[in-house]
């Protein structure tokens, strides 16, 4: 018996964006791949550099949630964070306006995370290829939100696009992509045979080649749930910090006991999500560290959103922090 239930529209819209546009927010391929212009990476090779468009969409998330919470159609209470392209039809809001409201410096920062990650891996001696505008989002949210039938179909498209690279290994920047490729694809999608690695693992293997990061303060590591619990990667982050000479402080809850940043709740329960981020920031700031380090685009977005104005603690992705060593 099929269950027909009408879920809040945001979920179906996210689904539609992924299936139709290959990105949860329907960002255009050109936008997603713009960071790579300076590097001219080949489309084929042994190691496929995979962004999944995830860091690129980070600056749009908060702006969209804000707009949609404000809109709060019919006082239903939940945020109708709709995919930009669909908002035009469904709610009469101008998509380009929302895009325009995202600050250029934010877009640049998060696009740069991809650039910096590629440079770091290249400097460590990895030969990378990249799908560019053809790269498709992994579909992790389809899995997360229950659209498994869609993922079965969409996953085939993703597998095809990955195969075109001829790569044996895929290196994922986002732990969510790594999780869905490594743990879910083998159970839902046929023909997925690429070795899945995370950026963190690739760096960890060659950490002795990392340049030192000159940083007078200490860092506190916010383990992402997916990385620490699903993928079992936590000590690697500490080892990497040791290699670059950064002092690490541990929050009250870390590694397998890490506290979620609240990010997964952002689509449907933005207020609760924000509150959770706030509390996690509190746990992290308690350590007195100068920088909160994470290694997940959604943690980065949620924690960045949770920091109070005027707070002296910065939030950085591991990629950004390591790049400090190369940028000298």
């Amino acid at each position: 018996m099929a269950v027909e239930m009408k879920l809040p529209p945001v979920l179906d819209i996210i689904r539609g964006n992924i299936v139709k546009h290959g990105n949860p927010l329907a960002l255009k391929g050109a936008e997603v791949a713009s960071w790579a212009k300076r590097l001219s990476l080949p489309a084929q090779g042994e190691i496929l550099f995979y962004t999944g468009g995830e860091y690129q969409l980070v600056p749009f998330i908060d702006s969209l949630v804000k707009t949609m919470t404000h809109m709060d159609q019919g006082g239903k209470g939940f945020s109708l964070m709709m995919g930009v392209r669909n908002i035009l039809d469904k709610a009469g809001i101008n998509a380009e306006k929302i895009y325009a409201s995202v600050l250029a410096k934010d877009k640049e920062r998060f696009n740069n995370v991809c650039y910096k990650a590629a440079v770091i891996l290249q400097e460590l001696g990895y030969d990378l290829c990249y799908g560019g505008e053809q790269e498709l989002y992994s579909g992790a949210l389809l899995y997360e939100l229950g659209y498994w039938q869609d993922l079965r179909e969409y996953g085939q498209k993703v597998v095809q696009s990955l195969k075109q690279s001829g790569a044996k290994t895929i290196v994922c920047l986002s732990p969510h992509a790594a999780e869905v490729f490594k743990l879910v694809y083998p159970k839902l999608v046929k023909g997925f045979q690429i070795e899945v690695r995370t950026f963190v693992e690739m760096v960890w293997e060659k950490r002795d080649k990392l340049p030192a990061v000159k940083f007078d303060d200490s860092v506190v590591i916010h383990d992402s749930c997916r990385l620490a619990r699903e993928l079992g990667i936590d000590q690697e982050l500490r080892d990497i910090m040791e290699s670059v000479g950064a002092a690490v402080r541990e929050p009250m809850r870390s590694r397998k006991w890490t506290t979620c940043c609240g990010g997964p709740g952002k689509l449907l329960f933005p207020e609760i999500s924000h509150k959770i981020a706030d509390r996690r920031i509190g746990e992290l700031e308690e350590t007195g560290a100068g920088v909160i380090l994470t290694s997940c685009p959604y943690c980065l977005a949620a924690l960045q959103g949770g920091t109070k104005e005027g707070s002296e603690t910065g939030v950085e992705d591991l990629i950004e922090f390591l790049y400090r060593g190369f940028a000298v």
Partner: peptide
Amino acid sequence: GELRNRIVNGEE
């Protein structure tokens, strides 16, 4: 996860 799938796709 599986129950979300059942909400979306039914129990097949």
